[in-house]
Amino acid sequence: MSLARRAAGPWRALRWTVAVIYLFMFGPILITAAVSFNASNRSQFPPQGFSLRWWGNALSEEWLEPVLFSLQLAGATAALCVLLGAPLAFILTRQRFRGREVLVALTLGPLMLPALVTGVGLLQFFQYMGLRDYIGFPSLLAGHVVISLPFAVRTIAISLHGLPPNLELAAMSLGAGRARALWEIVVPLAKSGIIAGAVFAFVHSFTDVNLSIFLAAPGQIPVTVKIMGFLEFGFAPTLAAVSVITLIVPLTVVGIMQWLFGLGDFIYGDARG
């Protein structure tokens, strides 16, 4: 009884802290969502009346195209990050070789750089190397892979760290070649880490604006950049609706992955899946 009472104080404080954090996280989102249903022309809260016309605008060609573009870009980024990140993570966790530190720095370096700097750098690179034509999707993809790769590599490396190296040796002693041991043993056991890595890369790409703003081209504009551009004309309720869409897309992807593969196991700590 006395124990329970003594614990009650801290527990209540924790509960309140969590509530406040949630309020700060979801408050603006809920307000934005509410604003998108405004009947008036101004972004008001609480909304005046109820109307779906902003949603009509948001779901028009003008906005669906950049949303679709962002989706493709994020999908391609996630795929490339896994294809590059899984072998990289494997090499970095299992092999000791000269230049390993350099490879680590190169892989994780972009984490330390503001994406903005990477963006400017890439833009100049594409211009001065005579690759102007590739500004747009290809340059965006390159940039997004650079800034998203660290997340994929880290996540996959964590899942590989949890595997005893003896598993591969056991597979090899039973007659499996190196590649076969990787494919039959390591890949399935690191699966949740690999998928989590892909999801992180996807979300990071989909939500990026700092880098994308430099590398977009006409007709090849991620939705975040389009929103930035639109903001120059003030915050119209259309933007509120678009913002909700850009929120729903990555959440849906995470949700589907969670449903298919049970990411929670990985993200919340049980690397064995």
């Binding site: 005893p164 598993l167 040796l169 056991a170 597979a171 056991l189």
Partner: peptide, 8 residues
């Protein structure tokens, strides 16, 4: 192996 190294 000492830790058996069974494939989980």
């Amino acid at each position: 192996f000492q830790d058996y190294a069974l494939f989980p």
